[in-house]
Amino acid sequence: MKGIDRRTIDKTKRVLWGFTGEGIVYKLAVYFLLSLIGFVYLYPLFYMITYSFMNTEDLINPLITYIPSGFYMDNFAKAAEVMDFLNTLWQNVLASFVPAVVQTVSAAVIGYGFARFRIPGKSVLFALVLATFIIPPQITMIPQFLMFKDLGLIGSIFSYIIPAAFGQGIKSGLFILIFYQFFRSIPKSLEEAAQIDGAGAYKIFAVICVPMAVPAFIISFLFSMVWYWNETLLAALYLGDKLTTLPLELQNFAVTYQKVFPADPNAQTGRSLNEAINMAGTFLNIIPLLIVYFFTQRWFVESIERSGITGE
């Protein structure tokens, strides 16, 4: 009798805790922690979304803290007008899509060069590639700005494209590293076989290696795009007054708002800028990225495993 008891106890214990801590209690604790952390992660977004639908009465009403009394869309209409949403969105897409493509292609070519060929002084050069990642842009942007000004490229997208094409765009060093690691992981024997068949280095790169590196291309492109999209320091400096992006418009939101909806002493309340309109503007700002993330999240969250950037 006692033996059976002990056996059942042992079995229950095993189900609950597991041999290596993989039991039910353990898993529940992990779920609890993950959900708690997840809530804290998303809290600012919940806050933003609920506030963006509130009208002026909701904002004042002390009884309404989270759930607005209805879907009040006027905030979005105002915010979109202030940011000139569609127009800005198009410019933003242009100013992130094109540099991202250019940066990815150049990083692939450079990364391949570093991964495959014996070049004298290569290790020094590659150390410099990594060093460019550490140099803060503040230190190089004034002379770059002056350079582009002399070339008349301020306010054009070329001030973004040209450094990217030469592997000096936003975090280019990181993308070169991704391609370097990726190309090194491709077995060399494939290329050697092609070489014996008489294919030249460029042909091998274009026909054999590039198709194999599709994951690296996707990862680099997505991250480049997101980083170019969110860039404000360089954008404010290089794109000047001619091009604008959603983050830049959000930066000047309050000022632009005053211009678009000037304070009118005779007007009824609800005309001035309030939290709800601010949050609607912020929400509009990140919606495009949320949509991109929704469709591509696998590529983002698996990027580091797939690109093998952590090395072996």
Binding site: I37, Y41, V226, L248, L250, Q251, N285, L290, F300
Partner: peptide
Amino acid sequence: IYFLPVIITSGPVIKQLMDQ
């Protein structure tokens, strides 16, 4: 969920959320 902020983090967005 945990990776989402990396995508949407830009200076102005964080500033708006912080001010709020």
